[in-house]
């Protein structure tokens, strides 16, 4: 059925994409990050919260620009930086460092339920649960108000 080759290939592509996110949870470990919102939602992209992470900071020995890091659970159950380098290594999460802050593509924004954005932004103290695969991919799972 040559006519359905394209929808089949396209479904396969989306399935691999979806599977790769599930694989992060199947093979990876779960961490909770302290998070803070820093930007109101954008009406064009739907409701999402832009996040930054007070515990993810680069050391002075790290040059600003592209960085590679792993995280581990800290003493107060929130995740902290385990290893950080300017060169890539296996299992590392790729990110960028500027002004000692660390940003990484998949941790920058979190889509939330309609109407929940302002509430989370007002709360300011948030926590993000993420699954991190052994190969360094991240799957953000849950954004909640932090209780410490």
């Amino acid at each position: 059925m040559k006519n359905f080759l394209f929808p089949f290939a396209q479904t396969l592509f989306v399935s691999i994409l979806v599977l790769s996110f599930y694989a992060i949870s199947w093979f990876g470990e779960s961490y909770v990050l302290r998070a803070e919102p820093y930007d109101p939602f954008d009406p064009f992209y739907g409701e999402y919260v832009m996040l930054q992470y007070p515990d993810l900071t680069a050391t002075d020995t790290i040059e600003p620009g592209t960085i590679y890091f792993t995280i581990k659970e800290g003493p107060d159950r929130f995740a902290v930086i385990d290893k950080i380098e300017n060169e890539p290594f296996f299992g590392a999460i790729r990110g960028y460092s500027y002004d000692n802050r660390i940003v990484t593509e998949q941790l920058e924004q979190f889509y939330v339920e309609q109407g929940l954005g302002p509430e989370l932004e007002d709360a300011r103290d948030l926590q993000l649960t993420v699954d991190v695969a052994p190969w360094g991919s991240i799957r953000p799972k849950d954004l909640e108000i932090r209780n410490e």
């Binding site: 929808p7 396209q10 989306v14 979806v18 593509e105 998949q106 920058e108 979190f110 889509y111």
Partner: peptide
């Protein structure tokens, strides 16, 4: 709809779309 399925996947799994995954997939398709 294929483009929409990638966008929905990205939103569902909080995957950033500020990369070239969607344009590449659509270009090739």
């Amino acid at each position: 709809m294929f483009a929409a399925s990638i966008i929905v996947t990205a939103q569902t799994f909080h995957f950033s779309l500020s990369n070239s995954v969607l344009p590449w997939a659509m270009f090739l398709a």
